[in-house]
Lab assay of single mutants.
Amino acid sequence: MAEQVALSRTQVCGILREELFQGDAFHQSDTHIFIIMGASGDLAKKKIYPTIWWLFRDGLLPENTFIVGYARSRLTVADIRKQSEPFFKATPEEKLKLEDFFARNSYVAGQYDDAASYQRLNSHMNALHLGSQANRLFYLALPPTVYEAVTKNIHESCMSQIGWNRIIVEKPFGRDLQSSDRLSNHISSLFREDQIYRIDHYLGKEMVQNLMVLRFANRIFGPIWNRDNIACVILTFKEPFGTEGRGGYFDEFGIIRDVMQNHLLQMLCLVAMEKPASTNSDDVRDEKVKVLKCISEVQANNVVLGQYVGNPDGEGEATKGYLDDPTVPRGSTTATFAAVVLYVENERWDGVPFILRCGKALNERKAEVRLQFHDVAGDIFHQQCKRNELVIRVQPNEAVYTKMMTKKPGMFFNPEESELDLTYGNRYKNVKLPDAYERLILDVFCGSQMHFVRSDELREAWRIFTPLLHQIELEKPKPIPYIYGSRGPTEADELMKRVGFQYEGTYKWVNP
């Protein structure tokens, strides 16, 4: 592979701008107003304001973009700056750019259920340069409990009458099928589907988006991507930290609602779906819905739930269990780990287990898709061969690698495990991989909904998990304890083995 010439960040961002501006969906010269509902909250200060700053800094926003914060707290732009700027990672050389960014910011205080507050917000936006005809993007960085009041008031008082209007809704989209349907029906009564952007930030990850290209742009994968060759698929999300004093919020939802029903299920769809007619948003989402419709409700015998306990040999936070978090209700049975087996009941995947695993306070930070292939028929190497695996590593250190057998150097035919490896950090030294939120917010500006969740996708996802969630809430089974920093409950490994996964433990990928 030829040595790549190092590029400056300015040059890299210039390439990104060229890609972005050559499309006809990006209205570079139009006025846009980006409204952050819930501007005083954690999500706004840690993710949304920093993301908008990065896009502005790199010249990736339309030229005439204004940012308006809205929340109940009586704040000023200076207050917003004070709480969000520490997350910007701005350099001293960017000081003038930073001043320009905050000059485009404003803030309006108001209630979430008060019509007069929204009329005041609308008047404020109209007073901005060309504000009355601007395109408006409303980001709901809010708890779902206020979605209905907020969307109703936005629709009645704050819509642009000339430009387009788009609304970005953060997960969780309800707690179960019934609450999700209620919320979807409410929002759909106010906005068209092409105006609604239900954001799952995992769909903005580079390697998640790469799944489609790997599958449908490489001839070698087509013939082997089926039940005849693939023994099982494992989708993993692991965090090495616990709730760390923020367990009160987590306890309301648990690990299945927080990660599995959305992030992991979306990745499953991209692995299992048929080739779409095109890369058009609805063509892709149509195929994802077909996959979900082929999955039956989760069966309790295919589920393992766990909850982390303190590690007596650990240090600091590792010595504390979930129930030691003062914000967690006493005696909570909320799971911090889950392993679930699903089956896609169609011709391509009949009988292939899709194993979804996620948890907190585990032994490493990792998100990946792992396809394990069947054993080689007619073994001539005296059971020395391990199964081939194709691994798409989402985070950290984005990579695609194939675990395969090669001859060990020497005189004899002794096979050993090795890999074919594409590590993004080595291959793409001159490429700026956008943060997931950067990519998705740019998608909203461009009107691309491919990486957002459609209402029928959402409904099918909740259909699969709601009976299990209701059973857990009714019966309150005690989750299996696992030690902070471990791989999780051993019962999860036993479940995976029972459905056909072979864990060798003899080879570990190392970032080159």
Rank of each mutant, 00 (worst) to 15 (best):
R198I: 05
E19P: 14
F88R: 05
C232F: 05
V108K: 13
P92S: 13
L128A: 11
L121K: 04
I255Y: 02
K45T: 09
I187P: 01
S40R: 03
E148C: 07
L142F: 01
L235A: 11
I256S: 06
G110F: 02
Q11Y: 11
N126R: 14
N105A: 09
D79R: 05
G248K: 04
G222M: 11
L16R: 11
I48E: 00
Q161H: 10
V12F: 15
L16W: 11
T10I: 14
G69A: 13
A149E: 08
A149K: 12
N153P: 04
P143V: 09
A134Y: 12
P223T: 08
F253P: 01
K171L: 00
G14A: 15
S117M: 14
V169I: 12
Q22C: 09
W53V: 00
H129V: 10
M207H: 00
L61D: 00
G59C: 10
E252F: 14
K97Q: 13
L7S: 15
D251E: 09
I67M: 06
N135D: 10
Y112T: 05
R104W: 06
S106P: 00
E63K: 11
F88G: 08
R257L: 04
D251F: 00
A141K: 07
A109H: 14
S189E: 11
M159G: 09
E93Q: 15
G41L: 00
I80T: 03
I48V: 11
F138M: 06
M212E: 00
A149P: 09
F237Y: 04
R257G: 05
E63A: 12
L7T: 14
F21D: 09
K152I: 09
G254F: 01
Q119A: 09
L177P: 01
V233F: 03
D181E: 08
P62I: 04
D251R: 04
R17Y: 15
R72Y: 00
Q111F: 10
S40W: 03
P240Y: 13
S157C: 12
S184N: 08
G222S: 15
F87W: 15
F191W: 09
P172D: 01
K82E: 04
K152F: 10
F66Q: 12
E19Y: 12
D200M: 00
S160Y: 09
F237V: 13
E193A: 03
V12T: 15
A90Y: 05
R227S: 11
H186M: 14
N165H: 12
